[in-house]
Design a protein around this nucleic acid. Structure first.
Lengths: 205, 205
DNA sequence: GTCTATAAATAGATAGAC
DNA sequence: GTCTATCTATTTATAGAC
Protein backbone atom coordinates (compact mmCIF):
# COMPACT_ATOMS: atom_id res chain seq x y z
CA UNK A 1 0.00 0.00 0.00
CA UNK A 2 1.46 3.33 -1.06
CA UNK A 3 1.79 5.30 2.14
CA UNK A 4 0.68 8.92 2.27
CA UNK A 5 -2.85 8.20 3.40
CA UNK A 6 -4.83 11.10 4.76
CA UNK A 7 -2.97 12.38 7.77
CA UNK A 8 0.48 11.10 6.88
CA UNK A 9 3.01 13.82 7.53
CA UNK A 10 5.25 14.33 4.55
CA UNK A 11 8.91 15.18 4.62
CA UNK A 12 9.95 18.17 2.65
CA UNK A 13 12.01 16.72 -0.23
CA UNK A 14 15.76 17.33 -0.30
CA UNK A 15 16.99 19.88 -2.81
CA UNK A 16 16.99 18.43 -6.30
CA UNK A 17 14.39 15.82 -5.41
CA UNK A 18 11.31 17.93 -5.95
CA UNK A 19 10.40 16.56 -9.34
CA UNK A 20 10.24 12.96 -8.21
CA UNK A 21 8.56 13.94 -4.95
CA UNK A 22 5.86 15.76 -6.93
CA UNK A 23 5.17 12.67 -9.00
CA UNK A 24 5.09 10.39 -5.97
CA UNK A 25 2.75 12.64 -4.02
CA UNK A 26 0.48 13.06 -7.05
CA UNK A 27 -0.56 9.42 -6.69
CA UNK A 28 -1.59 9.99 -3.09
CA UNK A 29 -3.53 13.12 -4.00
CA UNK A 30 -5.30 11.37 -6.90
CA UNK A 31 -6.18 8.55 -4.52
CA UNK A 32 -7.90 10.95 -2.17
CA UNK A 33 -9.42 13.55 -4.48
CA UNK A 34 -9.56 12.00 -7.92
CA UNK A 35 -8.70 13.66 -11.19
CA UNK A 36 -11.11 16.58 -10.82
CA UNK A 37 -9.98 17.35 -7.28
CA UNK A 38 -6.29 17.27 -8.17
CA UNK A 39 -4.55 20.59 -7.63
CA UNK A 40 -0.94 21.65 -8.12
CA UNK A 41 -1.25 24.13 -5.27
CA UNK A 42 -2.33 21.47 -2.81
CA UNK A 43 0.48 19.23 -3.98
CA UNK A 44 2.99 22.00 -3.23
CA UNK A 45 1.44 22.62 0.17
CA UNK A 46 1.77 18.96 1.09
CA UNK A 47 5.42 18.93 0.11
CA UNK A 48 6.01 22.15 2.02
CA UNK A 49 7.32 24.03 -0.99
CA UNK A 50 5.98 27.22 -2.55
CA UNK A 51 3.11 26.99 -5.00
CA UNK A 52 5.46 28.24 -7.69
CA UNK A 53 8.05 25.50 -7.25
CA UNK A 54 6.22 22.78 -9.24
CA UNK A 55 6.19 25.04 -12.28
CA UNK A 56 9.99 24.84 -12.43
CA UNK A 57 9.58 21.16 -13.27
CA UNK A 58 6.33 21.01 -15.21
CA UNK A 59 4.91 23.49 -17.69
CA UNK A 60 1.47 23.24 -16.13
CA UNK A 61 -0.97 20.99 -14.32
CA UNK A 62 -1.64 18.86 -17.38
CA UNK A 63 2.01 18.21 -18.13
CA UNK A 64 2.46 16.93 -14.58
CA UNK A 65 -0.62 14.75 -14.85
CA UNK A 66 0.60 13.36 -18.16
CA UNK A 67 3.84 12.18 -16.54
CA UNK A 68 1.87 10.66 -13.66
CA UNK A 69 -0.52 8.98 -16.10
CA UNK A 70 2.40 7.55 -18.06
CA UNK A 71 3.95 6.09 -14.94
CA UNK A 72 0.57 4.72 -13.87
CA UNK A 73 0.16 2.97 -17.21
CA UNK A 74 3.63 1.43 -17.00
CA UNK A 75 3.07 0.27 -13.41
CA UNK A 76 -0.28 -1.23 -14.35
CA UNK A 77 1.13 -3.04 -17.34
CA UNK A 78 3.74 -4.68 -15.14
CA UNK A 79 1.29 -5.50 -12.33
CA UNK A 80 -1.17 -7.08 -14.73
CA UNK A 81 1.50 -8.98 -16.62
CA UNK A 82 2.71 -10.47 -13.36
CA UNK A 83 -0.82 -11.33 -12.25
CA UNK A 84 -1.57 -13.10 -15.51
CA UNK A 85 1.62 -15.15 -15.31
CA UNK A 86 1.03 -16.09 -11.69
CA UNK A 87 -2.58 -17.13 -12.22
CA UNK A 88 -2.06 -20.59 -13.69
CA UNK A 89 -2.96 -22.01 -17.08
CA UNK A 90 -6.76 -21.49 -17.24
CA UNK A 91 -7.52 -18.59 -19.64
CA UNK A 92 -10.52 -17.46 -17.57
CA UNK A 93 -8.49 -17.42 -14.37
CA UNK A 94 -5.71 -15.48 -16.05
CA UNK A 95 -8.04 -12.79 -17.34
CA UNK A 96 -9.94 -12.55 -14.07
CA UNK A 97 -6.67 -12.25 -12.16
CA UNK A 98 -5.62 -9.50 -14.52
CA UNK A 99 -8.79 -7.54 -13.84
CA UNK A 100 -8.32 -8.17 -10.12
CA UNK A 101 -4.78 -6.84 -10.31
CA UNK A 102 -6.11 -3.73 -12.02
CA UNK A 103 -8.55 -3.14 -9.19
CA UNK A 104 -5.95 -3.77 -6.49
CA UNK A 105 -3.36 -1.53 -8.07
CA UNK A 106 -5.68 1.36 -8.91
CA UNK A 107 -7.42 1.23 -5.53
CA UNK A 108 -4.01 1.59 -3.98
CA UNK A 109 -2.45 4.15 -6.32
CA UNK A 110 -5.44 6.21 -7.43
CA UNK A 111 -4.65 6.34 -11.16
CA UNK A 112 -6.38 4.02 -13.61
CA UNK A 113 -7.95 4.25 -17.05
CA UNK A 114 -9.75 7.42 -16.00
CA UNK A 115 -6.38 9.14 -15.64
CA UNK A 116 -4.40 7.28 -18.32
CA UNK A 117 -7.02 7.89 -20.98
CA UNK A 118 -8.40 11.11 -19.55
CA UNK A 119 -10.12 13.30 -22.07
CA UNK A 120 -8.44 16.26 -20.37
CA UNK A 121 -4.96 15.02 -21.33
CA UNK A 122 -5.79 14.15 -24.93
CA UNK A 123 -5.02 17.62 -26.36
CA UNK A 124 -1.40 17.40 -25.13
CA UNK A 125 -0.72 14.60 -27.62
CA UNK A 126 2.06 13.40 -25.31
CA UNK A 127 4.10 10.72 -27.07
CA UNK A 128 5.23 8.92 -23.90
CA UNK A 129 1.70 8.70 -22.57
CA UNK A 130 0.40 7.46 -25.92
CA UNK A 131 3.09 4.76 -25.96
CA UNK A 132 2.33 3.65 -22.40
CA UNK A 133 -1.40 3.53 -23.13
CA UNK A 134 -0.83 1.47 -26.27
CA UNK A 135 1.40 -0.99 -24.39
CA UNK A 136 -1.30 -1.45 -21.81
CA UNK A 137 -3.99 -2.11 -24.37
CA UNK A 138 -1.73 -4.45 -26.33
CA UNK A 139 -1.14 -6.56 -23.25
CA UNK A 140 -4.85 -6.83 -22.60
CA UNK A 141 -5.75 -7.69 -26.17
CA UNK A 142 -3.02 -10.34 -26.28
CA UNK A 143 -4.40 -11.89 -23.11
CA UNK A 144 -7.91 -11.94 -24.57
CA UNK A 145 -6.63 -13.51 -27.78
CA UNK A 146 -4.76 -16.22 -25.96
CA UNK A 147 -7.94 -16.89 -24.01
CA UNK A 148 -9.36 -18.18 -27.27
CA UNK A 149 -10.98 -15.06 -28.66
CA UNK A 150 -9.16 -14.98 -31.97
CA UNK A 151 -11.58 -12.51 -33.54
CA UNK A 152 -10.06 -9.09 -32.71
CA UNK A 153 -13.37 -7.33 -32.29
CA UNK A 154 -14.56 -10.13 -30.00
CA UNK A 155 -11.37 -9.78 -27.93
CA UNK A 156 -11.91 -6.03 -27.71
CA UNK A 157 -15.48 -6.51 -26.54
CA UNK A 158 -14.33 -8.87 -23.81
CA UNK A 159 -11.72 -6.42 -22.58
CA UNK A 160 -14.29 -3.64 -22.61
CA UNK A 161 -16.71 -5.64 -20.48
CA UNK A 162 -14.04 -6.82 -18.10
CA UNK A 163 -12.58 -3.39 -17.42
CA UNK A 164 -15.86 -1.58 -17.19
CA UNK A 165 -16.64 -4.07 -14.45
CA UNK A 166 -13.26 -3.59 -12.78
CA UNK A 167 -13.36 0.18 -12.99
CA UNK A 168 -16.90 0.25 -11.65
CA UNK A 169 -15.72 -1.60 -8.56
CA UNK A 170 -13.06 1.05 -7.99
CA UNK A 171 -15.39 4.00 -8.52
CA UNK A 172 -18.24 2.74 -6.37
CA UNK A 173 -15.89 1.58 -3.63
CA UNK A 174 -14.54 5.12 -3.48
CA UNK A 175 -18.06 6.29 -2.58
CA UNK A 176 -18.49 3.55 0.04
CA UNK A 177 -21.18 1.90 -2.05
CA UNK A 178 -19.82 -1.60 -1.50
CA UNK A 179 -19.62 -1.46 2.25
CA UNK A 180 -20.28 0.94 5.11
CA UNK A 181 -16.66 1.97 4.99
CA UNK A 182 -14.23 1.79 2.13
CA UNK A 183 -12.90 -1.69 1.38
CA UNK A 184 -9.14 -2.24 1.32
CA UNK A 185 -7.51 -2.62 -2.11
CA UNK A 186 -7.13 -6.32 -1.34
CA UNK A 187 -10.79 -6.82 -0.44
CA UNK A 188 -12.24 -4.93 -3.36
CA UNK A 189 -9.87 -6.80 -5.68
CA UNK A 190 -11.14 -10.11 -4.35
CA UNK A 191 -14.74 -9.16 -5.03
CA UNK A 192 -13.95 -7.83 -8.47
CA UNK A 193 -12.02 -10.97 -9.38
CA UNK A 194 -15.02 -13.11 -8.47
CA UNK A 195 -17.32 -10.92 -10.57
CA UNK A 196 -14.86 -11.02 -13.46
CA UNK A 197 -14.84 -14.81 -13.35
CA UNK A 198 -18.64 -14.88 -13.61
CA UNK A 199 -18.58 -12.43 -16.50
CA UNK A 200 -16.02 -14.51 -18.38
CA UNK A 201 -17.94 -17.71 -17.80
CA UNK A 202 -21.08 -16.06 -19.09
CA UNK A 203 -19.26 -15.02 -22.23
CA UNK A 204 -17.85 -18.48 -22.80
CA UNK A 205 -21.25 -20.17 -23.06
CA UNK B 1 -32.15 13.11 -24.24
CA UNK B 2 -32.18 15.97 -21.74
CA UNK B 3 -31.36 19.07 -23.76
CA UNK B 4 -28.81 21.55 -22.49
CA UNK B 5 -25.83 19.93 -24.14
CA UNK B 6 -22.69 22.01 -24.33
CA UNK B 7 -23.53 25.11 -26.30
CA UNK B 8 -27.29 25.12 -25.74
CA UNK B 9 -28.44 28.63 -24.95
CA UNK B 10 -30.57 28.72 -21.84
CA UNK B 11 -33.56 30.94 -21.23
CA UNK B 12 -33.48 32.98 -18.13
CA UNK B 13 -36.20 31.48 -15.94
CA UNK B 14 -39.37 33.51 -15.32
CA UNK B 15 -39.66 35.09 -11.88
CA UNK B 16 -40.62 32.50 -9.30
CA UNK B 17 -39.28 29.64 -11.41
CA UNK B 18 -35.67 29.81 -10.30
CA UNK B 19 -35.77 26.94 -7.87
CA UNK B 20 -37.01 24.42 -10.41
CA UNK B 21 -34.74 25.87 -13.07
CA UNK B 22 -31.73 25.39 -10.77
CA UNK B 23 -32.61 21.75 -10.25
CA UNK B 24 -33.20 21.14 -13.94
CA UNK B 25 -29.95 22.77 -14.98
CA UNK B 26 -28.02 20.91 -12.28
CA UNK B 27 -28.55 17.68 -14.19
CA UNK B 28 -27.03 19.22 -17.31
CA UNK B 29 -24.06 20.52 -15.36
CA UNK B 30 -23.49 17.18 -13.63
CA UNK B 31 -23.63 15.53 -17.05
CA UNK B 32 -20.85 17.70 -18.32
CA UNK B 33 -18.60 18.19 -15.30
CA UNK B 34 -19.48 15.47 -12.84
CA UNK B 35 -19.89 15.82 -9.11
CA UNK B 36 -16.46 17.33 -8.43
CA UNK B 37 -16.80 19.88 -11.21
CA UNK B 38 -20.26 20.98 -10.12
CA UNK B 39 -20.40 24.63 -9.08
CA UNK B 40 -23.27 26.80 -7.86
CA UNK B 41 -21.64 29.85 -9.41
CA UNK B 42 -21.53 28.26 -12.85
CA UNK B 43 -25.13 27.17 -12.48
CA UNK B 44 -26.15 30.76 -11.77
CA UNK B 45 -24.13 32.00 -14.72
CA UNK B 46 -25.88 29.57 -17.06
CA UNK B 47 -29.29 30.67 -15.87
CA UNK B 48 -28.26 34.31 -16.20
CA UNK B 49 -29.00 35.15 -12.59
CA UNK B 50 -26.64 36.51 -9.95
CA UNK B 51 -24.38 34.12 -8.06
CA UNK B 52 -26.31 35.01 -4.92
CA UNK B 53 -29.73 34.03 -6.25
CA UNK B 54 -29.39 30.25 -5.73
CA UNK B 55 -28.74 30.83 -2.03
CA UNK B 56 -32.28 32.21 -1.64
CA UNK B 57 -33.52 28.71 -2.45
CA UNK B 58 -30.84 26.42 -1.04
CA UNK B 59 -28.77 26.81 2.07
CA UNK B 60 -25.61 25.79 0.27
CA UNK B 61 -24.14 23.71 -2.51
CA UNK B 62 -24.72 20.45 -0.69
CA UNK B 63 -28.38 21.15 0.04
CA UNK B 64 -28.95 21.76 -3.66
CA UNK B 65 -27.10 18.60 -4.60
CA UNK B 66 -29.13 16.61 -2.09
CA UNK B 67 -32.38 17.69 -3.75
CA UNK B 68 -30.95 16.82 -7.16
CA UNK B 69 -29.73 13.45 -5.87
CA UNK B 70 -33.16 12.70 -4.43
CA UNK B 71 -34.86 13.47 -7.70
CA UNK B 72 -32.27 11.40 -9.55
CA UNK B 73 -32.96 8.42 -7.30
CA UNK B 74 -36.73 8.73 -7.81
CA UNK B 75 -36.36 9.03 -11.58
CA UNK B 76 -34.06 6.04 -11.68
CA UNK B 77 -36.38 3.94 -9.60
CA UNK B 78 -39.21 4.62 -12.02
CA UNK B 79 -37.07 4.10 -15.13
CA UNK B 80 -35.76 0.79 -13.85
CA UNK B 81 -39.15 -0.41 -12.68
CA UNK B 82 -40.54 0.26 -16.14
CA UNK B 83 -37.61 -1.46 -17.82
CA UNK B 84 -38.00 -4.55 -15.68
CA UNK B 85 -41.72 -4.77 -16.41
CA UNK B 86 -41.23 -4.29 -20.14
CA UNK B 87 -38.46 -6.86 -20.43
CA UNK B 88 -40.50 -10.02 -20.49
CA UNK B 89 -40.64 -12.99 -18.13
CA UNK B 90 -37.02 -14.22 -18.11
CA UNK B 91 -35.36 -13.19 -14.81
CA UNK B 92 -31.98 -12.69 -16.48
CA UNK B 93 -33.47 -10.48 -19.17
CA UNK B 94 -35.32 -8.44 -16.58
CA UNK B 95 -32.22 -7.78 -14.51
CA UNK B 96 -30.09 -7.04 -17.56
CA UNK B 97 -32.72 -4.62 -18.84
CA UNK B 98 -32.74 -2.94 -15.45
CA UNK B 99 -28.99 -2.43 -15.58
CA UNK B 100 -29.32 -1.19 -19.15
CA UNK B 101 -31.97 1.30 -18.08
CA UNK B 102 -29.61 2.54 -15.37
CA UNK B 103 -26.89 3.15 -17.93
CA UNK B 104 -29.23 4.86 -20.39
CA UNK B 105 -30.78 7.10 -17.77
CA UNK B 106 -27.56 8.10 -16.04
CA UNK B 107 -25.70 8.66 -19.32
CA UNK B 108 -28.47 11.05 -20.24
CA UNK B 109 -29.03 12.78 -16.91
CA UNK B 110 -25.59 12.73 -15.33
CA UNK B 111 -26.60 11.62 -11.83
CA UNK B 112 -26.27 8.01 -10.74
CA UNK B 113 -25.10 6.11 -7.68
CA UNK B 114 -22.03 8.34 -7.47
CA UNK B 115 -24.32 11.29 -6.77
CA UNK B 116 -27.15 9.53 -4.95
CA UNK B 117 -24.78 7.80 -2.53
CA UNK B 118 -22.06 10.44 -2.62
CA UNK B 119 -19.84 10.45 0.42
CA UNK B 120 -19.94 14.25 0.27
CA UNK B 121 -23.71 14.30 0.94
CA UNK B 122 -23.66 11.76 3.75
CA UNK B 123 -23.04 14.28 6.57
CA UNK B 124 -26.29 16.12 5.73
CA UNK B 125 -28.32 13.12 6.85
CA UNK B 126 -31.10 14.28 4.54
CA UNK B 127 -34.25 12.24 5.21
CA UNK B 128 -35.70 12.59 1.69
CA UNK B 129 -32.49 11.48 0.07
CA UNK B 130 -32.16 8.55 2.46
CA UNK B 131 -35.72 7.48 1.63
CA UNK B 132 -35.15 7.74 -2.12
CA UNK B 133 -31.91 5.78 -1.87
CA UNK B 134 -33.58 3.05 0.17
CA UNK B 135 -36.45 2.78 -2.33
CA UNK B 136 -33.96 2.36 -5.11
CA UNK B 137 -32.05 -0.39 -3.31
CA UNK B 138 -35.27 -2.13 -2.30
CA UNK B 139 -36.40 -2.30 -5.91
CA UNK B 140 -33.09 -3.81 -6.97
CA UNK B 141 -32.99 -6.36 -4.19
CA UNK B 142 -36.57 -7.39 -4.93
CA UNK B 143 -35.67 -7.91 -8.56
CA UNK B 144 -32.67 -10.02 -7.59
CA UNK B 145 -34.79 -12.09 -5.21
CA UNK B 146 -37.47 -12.74 -7.81
CA UNK B 147 -34.68 -13.80 -10.17
CA UNK B 148 -34.25 -16.77 -7.91
CA UNK B 149 -31.62 -15.53 -5.50
CA UNK B 150 -33.54 -16.07 -2.31
CA UNK B 151 -30.47 -15.76 -0.09
CA UNK B 152 -30.32 -12.02 0.73
CA UNK B 153 -26.54 -11.83 0.77
CA UNK B 154 -26.43 -13.62 -2.57
CA UNK B 155 -28.95 -11.14 -3.98
CA UNK B 156 -26.88 -8.26 -2.68
CA UNK B 157 -23.75 -9.68 -4.30
CA UNK B 158 -25.54 -9.96 -7.62
CA UNK B 159 -26.72 -6.36 -7.47
CA UNK B 160 -23.24 -5.23 -6.53
CA UNK B 161 -21.70 -6.99 -9.53
CA UNK B 162 -24.37 -5.82 -11.92
CA UNK B 163 -24.17 -2.16 -10.96
CA UNK B 164 -20.42 -2.00 -10.75
CA UNK B 165 -20.52 -3.19 -14.34
CA UNK B 166 -23.20 -0.68 -15.31
CA UNK B 167 -21.52 2.22 -13.55
CA UNK B 168 -18.18 1.33 -15.09
CA UNK B 169 -19.72 1.64 -18.54
CA UNK B 170 -20.94 5.12 -17.70
CA UNK B 171 -17.64 6.29 -16.21
CA UNK B 172 -15.41 4.96 -18.96
CA UNK B 173 -17.74 6.15 -21.69
CA UNK B 174 -17.46 9.63 -20.23
CA UNK B 175 -13.70 9.46 -20.90
CA UNK B 176 -14.23 8.16 -24.45
CA UNK B 177 -12.68 4.82 -23.52
CA UNK B 178 -15.34 2.79 -25.33
CA UNK B 179 -15.07 4.55 -28.63
CA UNK B 180 -13.18 7.40 -30.28
CA UNK B 181 -16.04 9.69 -29.40
CA UNK B 182 -18.58 9.40 -26.66
CA UNK B 183 -21.33 6.85 -27.30
CA UNK B 184 -24.95 7.96 -27.10
CA UNK B 185 -26.94 6.93 -24.00
CA UNK B 186 -28.75 4.42 -26.19
CA UNK B 187 -25.57 2.84 -27.57
CA UNK B 188 -23.75 2.56 -24.27
CA UNK B 189 -26.90 1.10 -22.71
CA UNK B 190 -27.04 -1.56 -25.43
CA UNK B 191 -23.46 -2.60 -24.78
CA UNK B 192 -23.94 -2.61 -21.03
CA UNK B 193 -27.09 -4.71 -21.33
CA UNK B 194 -25.21 -7.32 -23.32
CA UNK B 195 -22.41 -7.40 -20.74
CA UNK B 196 -24.95 -7.64 -17.92
CA UNK B 197 -26.57 -10.64 -19.60
CA UNK B 198 -23.21 -12.41 -19.77
CA UNK B 199 -22.50 -11.60 -16.12
CA UNK B 200 -25.86 -12.98 -15.04
CA UNK B 201 -25.42 -16.13 -17.09
CA UNK B 202 -22.03 -16.67 -15.53
CA UNK B 203 -23.54 -16.35 -12.07
CA UNK B 204 -26.33 -18.81 -12.85
CA UNK B 205 -23.98 -21.69 -13.69
C1' DG C 1 16.44 24.73 -7.85
C1' DT C 2 13.58 27.09 -5.00
C1' DC C 3 11.69 31.34 -3.13
C1' DT C 4 8.65 35.67 -2.61
C1' DA C 5 5.37 38.35 -4.58
C1' DT C 6 1.79 38.88 -7.43
C1' DA C 7 -2.05 38.64 -10.87
C1' DA C 8 -6.36 37.05 -12.74
C1' DA C 9 -10.08 33.44 -12.35
C1' DT C 10 -13.27 31.18 -9.90
C1' DA C 11 -15.68 29.40 -5.85
C1' DG C 12 -18.76 29.52 -1.71
C1' DA C 13 -21.30 32.43 0.90
C1' DT C 14 -23.44 36.77 3.28
C1' DA C 15 -25.62 41.65 3.92
C1' DG C 16 -28.64 44.65 2.60
C1' DA C 17 -31.14 47.22 -1.30
C1' DC C 18 -35.19 46.99 -4.32
C1' DG D 1 -37.64 36.78 -5.36
C1' DT D 2 -33.74 38.64 -7.19
C1' DC D 3 -30.00 42.04 -7.33
C1' DT D 4 -25.55 44.48 -6.30
C1' DA D 5 -21.73 44.52 -3.69
C1' DT D 6 -18.57 42.35 -0.97
C1' DC D 7 -15.59 38.98 1.63
C1' DT D 8 -12.67 35.05 2.01
C1' DA D 9 -10.43 31.20 0.16
C1' DT D 10 -8.46 28.70 -3.56
C1' DT D 11 -6.36 27.80 -8.02
C1' DT D 12 -3.40 28.37 -12.09
C1' DA D 13 0.39 30.65 -13.55
C1' DT D 14 4.23 34.31 -14.18
C1' DA D 15 8.27 37.54 -13.00
C1' DG D 16 12.15 38.19 -10.86
C1' DA D 17 15.15 37.61 -6.54
C1' DC D 18 18.47 34.49 -4.25
Amino acid sequence: MAEATVGASIERPARGQLRSALIAESFALLSEKGMAGFSVAELARRLKVSTAAPYRHFRNREALLAVVATQAADELTRAMETAAQTAGPEPIDRLAATAGAYVRHVSDRGAGFDVIFARELRPLRDADLARAGRNLMTLLLDLARSAGHADPSRALLLIEQLFCLAHGYITLNAEDFLSRSRLSPEDVATRATRAATALLRGNAT
